[in-house]
Amino acid sequence: MMRDDTEFLEDDVYNFAYLDEDTKQMIRRTILKAVAIPGFQVPFGSREIPLPHGWGTGGMQLTASLLGQSDVLKVIDQGADDTTNAVSIRRFFKRTTKVRTTRSTREATIIQTRHRIPEHPLTEEQILVFQVPSPEPMRTLVRTEAETRKLHAAGDYSILYLKLYEDIARFGNVATAYNHPVLVNGRYVAAPSPIPKFDNPKLHRNRALLVFSAGRENRIYAIPPFTTVTSLDLEDYPFAVEPQEGRCHLCGSTSAFLDERVTDDGDRVFACSDTSYCEERRRAKRRPNEPVTDRAIEESAGQ
């Protein structure tokens, strides 16, 4: 007989949210510093998490330090609530904190994300936690990490603009489709984790606190609510989101970020990358008069 894996866990085996209190305190202090210096990468002592590096260990340490008993947690991976990474991280925190989890962007107070910002606008009550593989936007362009820090200190981001020049000269436009660097609060340039360019405008004056963490690289940085965020561009080639062709074959959306999927017979269809947004829209079409609740979304996901 299948057993729920929470049964294996005794209540007192782990501290609340897995990390010990001292570690959580250290990480909270780091977050405060990151909020005080928007876009600046603050070093922190990254801990072991029972997950390989590159699967969200940085994000998990933020989430563990931020979660309180009354929080409601949502975890998404590439916009989806139901992929392996999202499911296992959500289950991990359910086991170690017993906090309520949700698929609804609206209901969540903390959302841990990989590669996307939810379609539904966030509020002042919410915190978005990003998993970041490489926090340094100049890492591939400069020889050493020490050099990148000097450039940050001097506010010299010419190498990133040189990259834009090179892209335009070579491809006719700026070739980055994701992780397009942003200038935060007019001072530090940050890598917005590999979110698609499509999501970059959502970083600007977002109502929620946006915190980023790279577990392997020991760095935390933040974009506080209502911060000015501009995507790097050249005057005669202004930053632009790539136009999307097609519409979601499930909910009909043309304005959400769409994934292209290959069907069994070789056709191509598009679908919203944000699964909860898509389910919400489908639900609302079926029963326009009912309020959208988390339960309703869970139900329609099962249908």
């Binding site: 010299d156 010419s158 603009y161 834009l164 020049y165 005057e235 005669d236 080639y237």
Partner: peptide, 11 residues
């Protein structure tokens, strides 16, 4: 590159 360093942001 040196133009960019000096602040030129125009392709």
């Amino acid at each position: 590159e040196q133009l960019i360093v000096s602040g030129v942001r125009h392709f």
